[in-house]
Simulated assay, not measured.
Amino acid sequence: MANSILIVDDNHEVADLLFSLMLQHDRIPHCACNGRDAIAAVGRHLPEVVICDLAMPGMSGFDVAESLSAIYGARCPIMIALTGWSDSGVAQQALNAGFSIVLAKPTDIRQLLAAIDLARSARQSGIAPN
């Protein structure tokens, strides 16, 4: 569904803030607080975009991206990673797991919205990796 965004973060304050910001920018946000809940949420309602933290207990953001890519293939939502890790190796690992874009926390909302629009445009033109 266009403009539907699933926010996945075990930090409830971050998830709530992103939820509010997405609402203010005419997006339709949903939240999941862990990887398993994220996969279940996508199964109930396939969003256009998943914004996912990488460092979560249990099922990491890497695991979420790999699982969703395996389950949905070409129908997989656009995956955007948000991470506090600054290592370039982590960014490459996230891209290899199925994320289209990796952004560092804290992320400016304009940067996040631009990343969503860029990934959406790339997918529509057939360039996006997932």
Rank of each mutant, 00 (worst) to 15 (best):
S100N: 10
V50P: 04
H25Q: 08
E66K: 07
I127E: 15
I78V: 09
N3D: 11
Q124L: 15
S88H: 04
G61I: 01
S69H: 15
S20N: 09
E13G: 05
E48L: 09
M56W: 09
L68H: 03
D53I: 02
A81H: 03
P47F: 09
G58F: 02
S67C: 08
Q111S: 05
V64E: 06
L21Y: 01
S121C: 13
V42S: 10
I39Y: 03
T107Y: 01
F19P: 01
A40I: 13
Q24D: 10
A81M: 03
V42A: 14
I101Y: 12
I78E: 02
L23H: 12
G126W: 15
M22P: 00
G89L: 11
N3V: 11
A115P: 02
D63K: 06
R123D: 15
A91F: 08
Q111N: 06
H30F: 13
P129K: 14
P57I: 09
S69T: 13
A128N: 12
I80S: 01
L112H: 04
S4R: 09
I116F: 06
S67A: 12
I5H: 02
P57A: 12
S69P: 13
L6Y: 05
R110D: 11
D37Y: 08
I7D: 06
L112R: 01
E48V: 05
C76K: 11
Q92K: 14
M56S: 04
R36A: 10
L6W: 05
A115D: 03
I71T: 15
F19L: 08
F62P: 06
A128I: 10
I101H: 10
K105M: 08
L68Y: 03
L46M: 13
G73S: 14
A70V: 14
L18P: 00
P77A: 15
R75Q: 13
Y72K: 12
H25P: 03
A15R: 03
A114I: 05
F19A: 04
